[in-house]
């Protein structure tokens, strides 16, 4: 092969490796990996299974909150949550029917919530305001209605 071609291939491969090192460092050293919780649940018995038998928000530490949430066509339970500014919120979610998405517009909170799987994601809300929470995976005729808000005071 031509020398230029060899160099080009070496450079491409090099870029790929550097990229992977960066992604790997972010994921494993900085703990910035994507939401990948592995716990499971019987999707037909969500209401009877702890902790989803009592969805809601609870304070678990110094300005740290836990939100146990179920997603179903076409809403979030609980909805219209309020937390103080600077609060770290840990979301624990599952779906009662089909696959839903959990996205908070304007943040990089974005996770798939699937029946049978418990998804977890955390975020610290530093800026006060009313955040829009929406379902970003098609879930049926009312999909465009599936939204709620998180108010940060």
């Amino acid at each position: 092969m031509h020398r230029l071609e060899e160099m080009w291939i070496a450079i491409s491969t090099g870029i790929l490796i550097i990229f992977m090192v960066v992604v790997g460092y972010q994921t494993f050293a900085l703990g910035m990996g994507p939401p990948s919780n592995k716990e499971t649940i019987d999707p037909q018995k969500v209401d009877q299974t702890e902790p989803f038998d009592e969805p809601g928000i609870s304070k678990i530490g110094d300005n740290e909150y836990e939100v146990v949430m179920t997603l179903q066509a076409f809403g979030f339970t609980p909805n219209n949550i309020e937390v103080p500014a600077g609060a770290k919120v840990n979301f624990i979610m599952t779906s009662k029917d089909v696959t839903h998405g959990f996205q908070i517009a304007g943040t990089n909170i974005n996770a798939m919530v699937m029946p049978g799987h418990i998804q977890k994601i955390s975020h610290t809300f530093d800026k006060p305001g009313e955040y829009l929470v929406l379902c970003n995976e098609y879930c049926g005729t009312g999909h465009q209605l599936m939204s709620t808000t998180i108010t940060v005071k």
Binding site: I9, S12, T13, I15, L16, F19, M20, V23, G24, T27, F28, G33, P34, P35, S36, N37, K38, T40, N110, A111, M112, V113, M114, H117, I118, Q119
Partner: peptide, 22 residues
Amino acid sequence: IDPGISESIKFLHVFMSLSIAV
């Protein structure tokens, strides 16, 4: 961003997806 797949497996797949770039 699916649940149920571990981060290390996802990392492997990021690598495999990106290898198409070469």
